[in-house]
């Protein structure tokens, strides 16, 4: 993002002050970086509050991962520019475009939580998980025994010619395992248009304050 600043003055005293401000722009860039960071931290919680689809769908408690991502946005600057740093390893990456998520650290699968107890927790944190395949496609999952839950049904025993009644232990699926996941783009996570205008407003405020300092009291 680049910005062109045009200044029109008709007062030599004012021009001196603005000249000082624009010749050494460290202060200006620091102000822009700070205001951009503050803007994102103000709007972030509001955007995050609308984007907990998985937790809401599962009925799980929100982890606040998106709020944490917004809180981790930082601005910095130097003599030449102002910068805004957005954590890449977060959901905010989708603001810059779609991407494919794949396992890391030698893992074979991604664990996608499909149970409220699994949301926000790593598979290794849960005990008594076992691997199994379900459905006609044999989808790999991690499941556990549902304590105290049994279901009556018909079961054919291998040595009998007809099914007899038996009680089954229900298995709860906690994670669906996947080798990769495509995350769609979500540009609204970072309001680029509003952020650009906010930075422009910040620059105007900075120069107006220079004008204010140049006026005799």
């Amino acid at each position: 993002m680049s910005m062109q600043i045009k200044v029109s003055v008709s007062n030599d005293v004012l021009l001196d002050e603005l000249g000082n401000v624009l010749s050494d722009r460290r202060g200006l860039y620091a102000r822009l970086a700070g205001d951009a960071e503050a803007f994102m931290r103000r709007v972030g919680p509001g955007i995050a509050a609308q984007n907990h689809r998985t937790a809401d769908t599962l009925g799980a408690r929100r982890t606040g991962h998106l709020e944490n991502a917004y809180a981790a946005i930082e601005g910095d600057s130097d003599n030449d520019e102002a910068r805004l740093w957005v954590p890449r390893a977060s959901r905010l990456r989708a603001a810059f475009g779609a991407y494919r998520l794949t396992p890391v650290n030698g893992s074979r699968y991604l664990t996608l939580p499909v149970h409220p107890d699994a949301y926000g927790r790593r598979a290794r944190e849960l005990r008594d998980l076992f691997f199994m395949r379900v459905g006609p496609a044999g989808v790999p999952v991690l499941a556990r025994r549902a304590e105290g839950r049994q279901q009556e049904g018909l079961k054919r025993r291998t040595y009998q010619r007809r099914k007899t009644r038996a009680r089954y232990t229900i298995a709860e699926i906690l994670y669906v395992l996947a080798t990769s996941v495509d995350i769609p783009a979500q540009p609204g996570l970072i309001p680029f248009d509003e952020l650009t205008e906010a930075i422009g407003i910040s620059a105007e405020a900075y120069l107006d304050e220079a004008v204010e300092r140049s006026r005799p009291t």
């Binding site: 803007f39 709007v43 509001g46 955007i47 609308q50 984007n51 689809r53 609204g188 996570l189 309001p191 509003e194 952020l195």
Partner: peptide
Amino acid sequence: QAIQKGGP
């Protein structure tokens, strides 16, 4: 505007 545009 930013919050409104950031919805689902």
